[in-house]
Amino acid sequence: MKYTTRQKAILLLSDGTIFYGKSIGIEGTTFGEVCFNTGMTGYQEIFTDPSYFGQIMVATNAHIGNYGVNAEDIEADQIMISGLVCKNFSFSHSRANSSGSLEDYFKKQNLVCISDVDTRALVSYIRDNGAMNAVISTDGKSIDELKALLAKVPDMKGLELASKVSTKEPYFVGQETATYKIAALDLGIKKNILRNLAKRDCYIKVFPFDATYEEMKAFNPDGFFLSNGPGDPDPLYGAIDIAKKILANDDPVFGICLGHQVLALANGISTYKMFNGHRGINHPVKNEITGKGEITSQNHGFAVNREELEKHPDLEITHLHINDGTVAGMRMKNKNCFSVQYHPEASPGPHDSSYLFDQFIENIKKAVKA
């Protein structure tokens, strides 16, 4: 019955392009930067990744919802995407350890979704014209009304979003008796990053985005971690200041995605908004140190300026994205600091790069011995 009675829905892009589809039954209007993820699985981890806050997700896989949801397959305690665009939405699901349907999961969190969209045409259009703001409407608003509302939505460039997803109060992960103590700055941290650190005998104190270096240092950590997160890194003045002080003190530090960009900015290297960004679980990266290739999970719309990085006397590129040559990783020659522009914790994705967590621990060991 749902397939014959569902209401029409609209996806309107900021340049006036319209795609039509159907509502899955949740009425509303939602805004965000439209982007696409090429992953064939792991949709629940994607929907709950804080780095996607403020974005409308286009799923390139033809079927979404077919294996339901599971309470353990989350990267945050709530859905982070602003809305979903998909081809076929599965109202029924089959999975032995499923705890419910994706439809019910969306209804509980009132996530607006438009299905029956020609997603191949939509993704092709975004590839050609770049990421842009968009609106999904399933509640009957007119095109003119939606255009007026969409015009008021700020662009992602210059937008600070870490404060929207960061913890409000510090919290702990792992065993207090663990060998290593890590102070983690939460700019939109994923749960699986914390799991990867904890299983490597780390006790982690997670700090809010607006914490100070002095507050983090008072934990007496063996190392610092700067997390992933949404939005433009440029407005994160507090995080950049923390990074500068970490480097000045030569504390061991590891940054992922937004944390990687913050470390670049702390070194005077600029960042820029990408035309489309990288979002998927099959992005090829070359390790410039070992010469080996890695298949990686990526989710970012900003990148570090390669030309400036190559000219910096104290920095070197450790990883490059094979498809477009963008910076995928860097390290400092004179400091205990490295970072990557992708997700070694995966979730979803391959585990080719999980060694980076081991590398962080080895760096900490060297610092402790010194």
Score class of each variant (00 low, 15 high):
239 A>D: 13
147 K>S: 07
73 D>H: 07
215 E>S: 15
180 Y>M: 12
84 L>E: 10
203 Y>H: 13
52 Y>V: 10
25 G>A: 14
362 E>V: 13
2 K>L: 15
236 L>Q: 14
356 L>S: 12
127 R>N: 02
237 Y>T: 09
367 A>D: 04
368 V>W: 00
267 N>W: 00
178 A>G: 11
364 I>W: 04
116 D>E: 10
11 L>R: 00
102 L>S: 10
171 Y>L: 04
125 Y>W: 12
266 A>M: 05
92 S>L: 15
56 I>H: 02
154 P>K: 13
56 I>L: 15
144 D>C: 13
230 P>N: 03
282 N>D: 13
140 G>D: 07
333 K>L: 14
348 P>A: 11
93 H>G: 06
32 G>E: 08
40 M>A: 08
48 T>F: 14
305 N>I: 06
70 N>A: 09
268 G>C: 10
154 P>Q: 07
58 V>L: 11
39 G>W: 08
4 T>D: 08
366 K>F: 09
9 A>E: 04
102 L>Y: 12
252 P>D: 03
39 G>H: 10
107 K>P: 07
262 V>T: 15
32 G>W: 11
106 F>S: 01
305 N>L: 08
111 L>G: 02
161 L>K: 02
186 D>V: 02
209 F>V: 08
62 A>R: 09
209 F>I: 03
142 S>K: 11
95 R>N: 12
171 Y>M: 01
17 T>Q: 14
167 T>D: 02
102 L>M: 13
268 G>A: 11
297 S>Q: 05
197 L>N: 03
116 D>L: 07
51 S>P: 00
181 K>F: 12
90 S>R: 14
12 L>S: 06
208 P>C: 04
4 T>M: 11
309 L>W: 04
359 Q>A: 14
254 F>G: 12
10 I>L: 15
313 P>Y: 13
141 K>Y: 13
361 I>C: 13
239 A>Q: 09
367 A>I: 00
202 C>H: 10
133 N>F: 08
65 G>Y: 14
3 Y>W: 06
171 Y>V: 01
362 E>H: 13
